[in-house]
């Protein structure tokens, strides 16, 4: 197992390096934005020269790595936050993103699983049809559509919730009731998709478990339907579901560009696109490294979690 884990981690770093290299080269190949004002163009050129952007890409890349390895320095931002360290650019925007994603998960995981269980238990009855229809709708419609609907009806028309996320200065902090209530609409918008996919997944797995032979055995040995379902069917059905939930947790650091834009969440969602549009190379690379790392690490955790949850699929386990 340890050997497998080490191998995966080494592979992860190799993949990270390849992706970084490709992204670095590609973003440097983009032409600088056109500036018609001569002095502004002159300053831009002076900055590019001063920062070594006119050197061969390979040389720039080596310098970039040297700075990371010797000083863990990913550089400064020039466009998104003038002279701000790229680490700060990301860090300052992480908390709102994490909070919203985390709340959305806490809301969607139990609801998704419960709906899935209900649908499986009432398979092919009207309850199942209602849940499945709602689930299909949630899966099919993109989250920004719910976002607009929620914002318009619950925010603007009914006035139940703030239309957009509140500011810290008006609420006194991220962990206040007022702030939380202003996050509810984006949380709901982010949750619907997750609820639907979890419900669908749970229903499918549980429905399969419920028809297994061991369920017959469980009933035969005297367990009630509820006992058999909870102790046997649900437990087995959770094996493929739990890794999905783990992956969801790993992804709470990634923001949703559209949801954050609609609800004015000062998160990381728009950072990637903005850094490309404004050619803020250092921010682009830092965001690339950050998200690639999270994505790759999440993959490893999910893969390993299968082994922990089900000894039958544990890599390297002695038979």
């Amino acid at each position: 197992m340890a050997k497998y884990v080490i191998k995966r981690i080494l592979l992860m770093f190799f993949t990270l390096f390849v992706i970084m290299t490709i992204c670095f080269v590609l973003v440097k190949l983009l032409e600088p934005n056109e500036i018609l004002d001569v002095t502004q163009a002159e300053r831009e050129e002076a900055i590019r020269e001063a920062l070594g952007y006119n050197k061969p890409i390979l040389v720039q890349y080596l310098i970039y790595w040297k700075n990371i390895l010797t000083a863990f320095d990913f550089g400064v931002s020039f466009k998104i936050e003038y002279l701000g360290s790229v680490n700060d650019v990301i860090q300052d925007r992480l908390l709102p993103t994490i909070l919203i994603n985390l709340y959305a998960l806490l809301f969607s995981v139990p609801l998704g699983i419960l709906l899935g269980i209900a649908a499986a238990l009432k398979k092919n009855r009207w309850q199942d049809h209602v849940i499945s229809t709602v689930v299909m709708m949630f899966v099919s419609v993109p989250s920004f559509v719910y976002a607009f609907i929620l914002q318009y009806f619950l925010g603007a028309k009914l006035g139940w919730f703030p239309i957009q996320m509140a500011s810290v200065s008006s609420t006194g902090g991220y962990f206040t009731w007022e702030m939380f209530s202003s996050m509810i609409l984006p949380i709901l918008a982010l949750s619907f998709g997750s609820i639907a996919s979890l419900a669908r997944f749970t229903r499918a797995e549980l429905a399969e478990s419920l028809t297994s032979d061991y369920m017959l055995l469980a009933r035969a040995k005297g367990l009630t339907v509820g006992q058999a379902t909870i102790r046997h069917a649900l437990k087995n059905a959770m094996v493929p579901i739990l890794p999905t939930i783990i992956a969801m947790f790993a992804n709470i650091l990634t923001g949703s560009l559209i949801i954050e834009k609609i609800f004015s969440v000062p998160g990381v969602g728009g950072l990637y696109i903005q850094s490309i549009q404004e050619l803020d190379y250092n921010v682009f690379m830092a965001v690339t490294v950050f998200y690639t790392f999270i994505g790759l690490a999440a993959n490893i955790i999910v893969d390993l979690s299968y082994g922990f949850l089900d000894p039958r699929i544990r890599m390297g386990a002695k038979k």
């Binding site: 318009y152 239309i163 609609i262 609800f263």
Partner: peptide, 12 residues
Amino acid sequence: QIIADQATALLE
């Protein structure tokens, strides 16, 4: 406020 989405601004 910083509101990137004009539709949100109009609702506000």
